[in-house]
Amino acid sequence: MMIIDEPLLRASSVTKLYGSRVGCEDVSFELWPGEVLAVVGESGSGKTTLLNCLSTRLPPTAGSVSYRMRDGNFRDLYEMSEAERRFLMRTDWGFVHQNPADGLRMTVSAGANVGERLMAIGDRHYGKIRSTAIDWLTRVEIAQDRIDDQPRAFSGGMRQRLQIARNLVTGPRLVFMDEPTGGLDVSVQARLLDLLRGLVSDLGLAAIVVTHDLAVARLLSQRMMVMKDGRVIETGLTDRVLDDPREPYTQLLVSSILQV
C-alpha cells in the first residue's frame, strides 16, 4: 500500500467574521486523502460557514486554506485565480448541497446534469457522455430509463442521488457535503448513507461532511470535529468522540440523541 505522507487539505486558523459576529473562529485541521471528516454541532455553530470557507465559496476574514493539487504541490486556495479555482471546483472537487435544487439544473435532463461537468472540461462526444451518464445513474441506483427525465420529476432521495452522481462523474478527490441526508425520510436516508459509504470507499474519496445528525457522522466518518459558537471544541476519531465525549457540550450533544 502506498504510504501517504502529506495531507490533501490544510486549514490554518480559518476565521470568518460577519461584522462583529463570529461565523467561525481559528479553525485549523488537516484532511488526509481518503479520509471522511464530519463536522458536527448545533444550528448556528458555524459548520456551514466553515464548509463555505473551505470550499472557496466564502472568503475567510483571516487564516488560509491550502490544497494539494494533482501535481503534488500545495496551493493556497485564495491566492489562485478565479479561473483556476472554478476549474478545481468542477474537476477535483464536488459539492453536495442539502437541497438538491441548489446543486442540480432542474430544467435539464438527468443525463445532461451528469454530463455537464464532462462537457465543461471539453468532452465533445455525445455517445461517450451518454454512456458515462448511464453508468453513473446505475451506480447511484437510478433506473436507466429515467436518463431523459428532468430532476423535477424525481423524488427527494433520487434528486440527492443524482446530485451525487453529477459531482462524482469527473472523479474528484475531495467532496464537500452539507447535510447530505437532511430532509429525507429515514429509510431513504439509510439507503443514501449506504450508497455514499460504498462510493467513498470504492473511489477513495476524501470528504468533509457537515451534519447535525450524529448517526450520519458515525456511519460515514472516521474523524470528527465538534463545533460550538464558531470554535472547534473537540476533535478525535468518530467512535472515540461519540463513545467517550470529553467536553461537557459534546457530552450534552451525544446524550441528546433520541433513543427509539
Binding site: R86, R105, V108, S109, G111, A112, G115, E116, R117, L118, M119, A120, I121, R124, Y126, I129, R130, I147, D148
Partner: peptide
C-alpha cells in the same frame, strides 16, 4: 466556461 452551451445541444439530441 462554455460547457453549459453543450448541455443545451445535449438536451436537443437526447430529446
Amino acid at each position: 466556461e462554455y460547457g453549459l452551451m453543450h448541455v443545451k445541444l445535449y438536451e436537443d439530441i437526447a430529446r
